[in-house]
Design a protein around this nucleic acid. Structure first.
Length: 603
RNA sequence: GGGGGCGUGGUGCAGGGGUCAGCACGCUGGUCUGUCAAGCCAGAGGUCACGGGUUCAAAUCCCGUCGUCCCCGCCA
């Protein structure tokens, strides 16, 4: 029996046709006489009917032996269902297949969980162990298809823009710095190792030197770091690099790419250009460089109001260069002492020392610091926060980076708790004017915010030079290197960083200035990236690019906050594959061949 | 590296020192000719994650281990 139709496509218009469908048994309902078998393939479910009067030659008898998840081929005639027995919850619910022939292509053991969207409740480790069963479920199958639709749309779009998809090696050279790398021992070269690329960053710049001009790749990247709900050891980037372009060209390209994908895959119009937010402004208003702008509750600076108040913590914080900032949680004035205490503990894990609160009740103001503030000061606080009766103002006083981190996270948390984040809304924005360097206090040096090949903004080149003759020491707030802005840009969607890139430095003199600032002399740099620096001496075009996280995009489109949902075969939190058991031990002979000896871990 | 949640038949959960191995779904058998979460009857299925301790007595309390999830650090 050869399949003529897929289960999910059959409709009233097929009535009368002789068909063969194949698939898995979703459900059987045996009424002693008539037997219903719901058959599922990836397109959907259709009901087949085995009537003893019409399914002869032992077919009915065999149908009664069928169990869930058996693989069947069923032949029969598509018929309109008897009036009153249509199932509006099935796309194929107007019809059924009156079976005349049935073949069991393969029986199946009872599955560890039912193949149904109800299985979302099943412990994830069971789903991961039997991933091939998990992926049979409509929700997972839809995400697999969604991911395919997205990558297909990306490829079509990039092709239309004149880009070439070029594949780059997975066996690559170790360039330490940044994330830990996955290491692959070399059999042919004793004691030497490849690493899996953290990203194709250097390769794509070489492709620019090679004259490719417009490159993209849907590239697998590997990072041996601890996972999170939105992080896996291997993940995928839509990696893009272009020559002879400026920042604006890349932003525009990526905006059009996202708009194209949303339109084609979801039928959703995305407005372009995306809003642009300066890095400093994002930090000031949202406390993060990846703000979720789907709701308000922005951070408000109260430093000037409270700096002369009698509350010593506020006073001293402002006097020592710190800030007092707040957010207004609507309708939370009734929070109990315990609830506020729990929130306080929660923000303390991000370095905040405490949480000052002002509850604006019907007739009274509740606050542990009220006695230190005048009525005018309190009124001004409420006014500036936009607080209404019933609201709760939450304040953090600390150094600016701590205030931003703690309040930024608190804003998100309260936004979630209070249900302020609208579903079905997609807020894209760009973060620009990002500093080129961040001060690394532990190592007492500047580190690149992005990577060492990121170019400074042309207008800040003088600052980069000035840093070498500065009168203040590195790390000082007035040091020029702290003020150099990078020609880089991050794209944020609903609070996720979905893309980040930069215009690269292609000139040797500028590159040396950058290396110098991060304490890397040219010889050291040559050891690490000599191949790239040498390439740059043979005519490197001005170039820049971006990398767009594929999984995060799919997560947002699929409406899940679990990255494992959008990866066919993901790993657990400690990077194991529960289905295969990887990583596994390797036999001594193989290890010897690889010139590798393992050290038993200590108790 | 650190913090927290969870772990009881295949799956989801209840039980929180004795009388407590319970429910639902699934599974097996029977019955039933229009169901679609089919119905009805019967049945099987458990090292209460593992190890140690406390106790006359532990699924239950304590300690440790393992597994998994979330978070901090980390992820240029």
């Amino acid at each position: 029996m050869k399949r003529t139709h897929v289960c999910g496509e059959l409709r009233a218009e097929h009535v009368g046709q002789e068909v063969v469908v194949t698939g898995w048994v979703q459900r059987t309902r045996d009424h002693g006489g008539v037997i219903f078998i719901d058959l599922r393939d990836r397109s959907g479910v259709v009901q087949t009917v085995f009537d003893p009067a019409r399914a002869s030659g032992g077919v009915h008898e065999r149908a009664s032996q069928v169990r869930n998840e058996f693989v069947l081929a069923v032949q029969g005639r598509v018929a309109k269902r008897p009036a009153g027995t249509e199932n509006p919850r099935l796309a194929t619910g107007e019809i059924e297949i009156v079976a005349t022939e049935m073949e069991v292509l393969n029986p199946a053991k009872p599955t560890p969980f039912l193949i149904s969207d109800e299985a979302d409740k099943v412990d994830e480790s069971v789903r991961l162990t039997y991933r091939y069963l998990d992926l049979r479920r409509p929700r997972m199958r839809n995400i697999l298809e969604l991911r395919h639709r997205v990558t297909k749309a990306v490829r079509d779009f990039m092709d239309g823009e004149g880009f070439w998809e070029v594949e780059t090696p997975n066996l690559w050279k170790s360039t330490p710095e940044g994330a830990r790398e996955y290491v692959v021992p070399s059999r042919l070269h004793a004691g030497r190792f490849y690493v899996l690329p953290q990203s194709p960053q250097l390769c794509k710049q070489l492709l620019m030197v090679a004259g490719v001009e417009k490159y993209f790749q849907i590239a697998r990247c590997f990072r041996d770091e601890d996972t999170r709900a939105d992080r896996q050891p291997e993940f995928t980037q839509i990696d893009i690099e272009m020559s002879f372009v400026e920042q604006e060209d890349i932003l525009s390209l990526v905006e059009r790419m996202y708009a194209y994908v949303f339109k084609r895959v979801m039928g959703i119009e995305i407005a372009t250009p995306f809003p642009r937010l300066r890095y400093a402004e994002a930090l000031a208003r949202y406390g993060t460089d990846k703000p979720d702008t789907r709701f308000g509750m922005e951070l408000v600076d109260l430093s000037d109001i409270v700096k002369d108040s009698g509350f010593r913590v506020f006073q001293q914080t402002v006097a020592s260069g710190g800030q007092v900032k707040a957010i207004c949680a609507p309708g939370c004035a009734g929070y109990s002492r315990k609830e506020v205490e729990d929130l306080t503990k929660w923000v303390q894990q991000f370095g905040a020392k405490g949480l000052a609160t002002f509850a604006l009740g019907e007739s009274e103001i509740r606050s542990q610091v009220a006695k230190f503030l005048t009525a005018e000061q309190m009124e001004e606080i409420f006014r500036r926060c936009g607080a209404k009766t019933g609201d709760l103002v939450l304040c953090v006083a600390d150094q600016p980076d701590v205030v931003a981190d703690a309040l930024g996270r608190l804003r998100l948390e309260m936004g979630r708790r209070l249900g302020l984040i609208p579903k079905g809304q997609y807020n894209f924005l760009w973060i620009v004017d990002v500093p080129l360097f961040g001060w690394n206090a532990a190592e007492q040096r500047y580190d690149p915010m992005h990577h060492p090949f990121c170019a400074p903004l042309p207008e800040d080149l003088e600052l980069l030079k000035a840093g070498y003759t500065a009168t203040v020491p590195p790390g000082h707030p007035d040091h020029p290197w702290g003020k150099v802005r990078a020609n880089l840009y991050d794209c944020v969607l609903n609070g996720y960083e979905v893309a980040g890139g930069s215009i690269r430095t292609h000139r040797r003199d500028v590159q040396e200035l950058v290396f110098g600032a991060i304490g890397l002399d040219f010889e050291q740099a040559k050891e690490r990236f000599g191949f790239l620096l040498e390439a740059f001496e043979y005519g490197a075009p001005p170039h820049g690019g971006i990398a767009c996280g594929l999984e995060r995009l799919i997560m947002i489109l699929a409406g899940t906050d679990n990255i494992r949902d959008v990866i066919a075969f993901p790993k657990t939190g400690d990077a194991r594959d529960l289905m295969t058991g990887a990583p596994t031990v390797i036999d001594d002979q193989t290890l010897a061949e690889l010139h590798v000896r393992t050290i038993p871990s200590e108790e």
